[in-house]
Design a protein around this nucleic acid. Structure first.
Lengths: 234, 234
DNA sequence: TCAGCTCGTTATCAACGATTACTAACCATG
DNA sequence: CATGGTTAGTAATCGTTGATAACGAGCTGA
């Protein structure tokens, strides 16, 4: 690498070196000397650029958020905003499993200065949620919906990373995903009984207003909706 | 192992001192010397008892789990196992907010040796979930239900601790709680429309079989269940 | 040319985790 | 009481780490 001063080479090299070392160790287990060795800079450079080791780690976390959000932005939007929420959830989990140490640095910061980019992540999630609201498929404020989804999403990832043998299965994430997203959006995947109830209600309205109704559907639905205690009254 | 007749004072003092220091700082920000000072022991004692600083921290985490589970066990059981699940969730959150650094040490361990007591926590949660199953109020395997609840619960706590200004509100936790527990148990709190649909179904059955029905309830329910697109025409 | 800035090198400090060697107290058994 | 084995306490030390200070090389713009 013969080039001397291109773009801010020193800062970039330090950031890259930290990211690379972060692929194999925890953030706090990385020594500043190892970073300087790999980045071919002297130790004071870190402190001139980032003021602190914490500052460097925070910068790396923010940079990780940037890539994280870039991947999210690349996700194509379909005409089903709720399905897009599920896709975003899955890509979030995939990112966490692929970059465990970086993910922990991003979402469980140690010091006082937290990464600012999480606000951006929240903003993107908010946009996705607002698309659901605009489609009439949101049952609470977008802010609360976004916080709920992100909290649960992070929880699934953290448990899978911290206790892989107990929480590393592939069932938990979809289960929690569908629970939270279903609750937030009122999507029918949440509970098939809602779909049945809707058909039933339309049938009821039709019955009361004298419109024709499919008797077979009604039979099945009334059987499905009958409370457990009441046995067949026939 | 067992040691002398007295409870092993040195080990106890070290654990207590670490816990006390853990009330004010992060686990990794605590120096072994500060622990030894407060515990009135020499430095080798830590390594004789726990082999490592990580070992000490893991022991403290396990001890934290013990108190955490003891508090959970003190929660009286009602005749509503689903309500008990919600109570357990809330006590979990309260513990996390009260002992932030200890909680992070328990649920996001840094090293290779994870605290064993989380299995016990999972076992207790599993029992609570099995009570729901025995009451006919569980829609999935108890294991998956327990993992889902615990993952989401930890996520809510971690986000509240890591980003208190963005996620420290008091709405997110109940929202995620009711979403996950509702999905897992199929409880009616999950979606009020199910309750309405049940009433509606009963009314429909009554109507079709010629039984009397309250017209006011039906009016309100049909209005609530009418799909968004269909306005009050026709 | 000179001042001013960024960048890099070396040397250094204080604190930290961890270890060694040695000593003092304890406790059951003979 | 004397024994040996375990546990606890003291002091000194090693290697590493985060963080600074001092200094100089190189370039920039006036």
């Amino acid at each position: 690498m013969g080039g001397t001063g291109d773009t801010s080479t020193a800062r970039e090299r330090i950031l890259r070196a930290t990211e690379e070392l972060l692929a194999g160790k925890d953030a706090l287990a990385i020594s500043t000397r190892a970073i300087c060795d790999r980045a071919k800079v002297g130790m004071p450079e870190i402190y001139r650029q980032f003021g602190d080791k914490q500052g460097l780690l925070t910068a790396v976390a923010d940079l990780g958020f940037e890539r994280f959000l870039a991947a999210k932005r690349r996700n194509p939007l379909t005409d089903d905003p709720v399905a897009d929420l599920r896709t975003a959830w899955d890509s979030h989990v995939a990112f966490a499993l692929r970059n465990p140490y970086l993910y922990r640095l991003m979402f469980t910061p140690t010091g006082e200065d937290k990464p600012q980019a999480i606000k951006e992540a929240q903003a993107i999630l908010l946009k996705a949620v607002e698309r659901c609201r605009d489609a009439g498929r949101l049952r609470m404020s977008p802010e609360l919906a976004g916080r709920s989804i992100l909290s649960a999403n992070v929880g699934v990832c953290m448990m899978a990373l911290s206790f892989p043998d107990l929480f590393g299965d592939s069932e938990t994430s979809p289960a929690v995903r569908d629970a939270v997203i279903g609750k937030v959006t009122g999507d029918e995947r949440e509970d098939s009984r809602i779909g049945m109830a809707t058909v039933l209600a339309q049938a009821l309205v039709g019955t009361l207003t004298g419109a024709p109704t499919s008797t077979g559907d009604l039979d099945r639905l009334t059987r499905a909706l009958r409370p457990p205690g009441a046995d067949s009254g026939a």
